[in-house]
Amino acid sequence: MYRIYLCLFYFSLRVVRYKLCAMGFNHSDEELMLQYVAGDAVAFESLYSRHKGPVYRYMLRLCRNEAVAEELFQEVWMKLIKARENYIASAKFTTYLYKLAHNLFIDHYRKQNVRIVEDLSVEVDDIEHEQQLANNPEYLTQTNQVMGKLTSLLESLPNEQREVFLLREEAGMTVSEIAETVGVNNEAAKSRLRYAIAKLRSGLNGE
């Protein structure tokens, strides 16, 4: 009798494994993307369900505007769909995806004539301004009601620092991957990340 149970158990395990495979659980992002390029729409669903949240939060916290974030988020995925034939599996999919998002963000702000500080050396004024905002109890109270202290502190960071922090937290990237995505060298990426962490910690500690 126990043999029948064993057989049933084994069979159910196989079924679960098959189902998981079909849902793309044991496939890497790169494999799923290649499957989608080959015409498998289900692979794209798996890929999208994996990355939709992080990419959306990355965009939302980078833009600080929900409508713009939604627009850019949609644009990222549409660009990925359209340019699927150009995808080369040698690059990490996450890097590829966030690079798309980064470029779209830059393009959007350039179109909007918003100044994006490329060099950390010229953002001293901005940092001071953001720090003032972060230390401003009125500002913090207002934003804390909605997003919490950390989120408001994050918003007070300069775009470059905020972006590298978001890439680290949302996409789980290493410093080199962040550098590749943002288009700077490793040292610059590391420096930005260091600044961001220091500011956030000091903000949280109430310094």
Partner: peptide, 14 residues
């Protein structure tokens, strides 16, 4: 937004 993107992805492939 999810539906919009997923349908676009399907339409592009199928």
């Amino acid at each position: 937004l999810n539906e919009k993107i997923l349908s676009a992805a399907k339409d592009a492939v199928i």
